[in-house]
Design a protein around this nucleic acid. Structure first.
Length: 191
DNA sequence: AGCGGGATTTTCT
DNA sequence: GAAAATCCCGCTT
């Protein structure tokens, strides 16, 4: 079992975004375990005009330039948090945005945080952060440790994965750097 | 079912 | 001072 082998997180960010599909996130809150499967991701790096790291290192995006396997959380639109898994070694400003997850365990706890039901629970980047109670306190957190762990699982077959243009941004929208699990009901939007 | 706009505050110019 | 890696509600078909 190589649950905590984050070696692959230093490679090509697009490949990593694809590799993270099907992996699990384990969130522990008040002795309760919330388990989800990653079903949608998006790749960002410094060459990407839509990336927070495009214009260099700042206080806000510092974590994204740090070591792989940590969590980059940012606040946006006055009310939402979104989370990324940092990739690349120290000094490389790249990460994979988690856009959607599927609840496996602790769904009733997630409902308490979200006040929503079904796919509406976790089918968007800010929605899943609310369901898993992720905020700026977890910015820079190492995903090898509680209370939020990345659990690496088997590689999915190419026929289970779909690639598309990106959503919800105004720059470099034509890049195909969004990856999701085919036919999964928790994907934010099929294309 | 699909479109349009408002919310709300941090961040960088 | 404007834009933002979004979400939700209400209005129209």
């Amino acid at each position: 079992m190589t649950k905590h082998d984050f070696e692959f997180l230093t490679g090509n960010v697009d490949s990593i975004a694809k590799r993270l599909l099907g992996c699990h996130l384990e969130r522990v809150i008040d002795d309760k375990k919330l388990l989800v499967k990653i079903v949608e991701t998006e790749a960002y790096d410094q060459s990407d005009a839509a990336s927070h790291t495009y214009n260099g290192r700042t206080v806000r995006n510092d974590v994204m330039f740090g070591r792989e396997g940590h969590l980059y959380v940012y606040f946006t639109y006055g009310k939402h948090y979104c989370c990324n898994i940092v990739t690349g070694k120290e000094g490389i400003g790249s990460a994979v945005l988690i856009r959607a997850v599927e609840p496996i365990q602790g769904e009733s706890e997630m409902k308490n945080f979200r006040q929503k039901d079904g796919a509406e629970l976790t089918n968007g980047p800010a929605k899943l952060c609310e369901a898993l109670h992720i905020n700026l306190q977890l910015n820079g957190h190492n995903l090898k440790n509680p209370p939020l762990k990345l659990i690496v699982r088997n590689v999915l077959g190419e026929n289970e994965i779909q690639i598309s243009k990106r959503i919800g941004i105004t720059k470099a929208i034509d890049l195909h750097r969004r990856f999701f699990i085919k036919d999964n009901p928790y994907v934010s939007k099929a294309m």
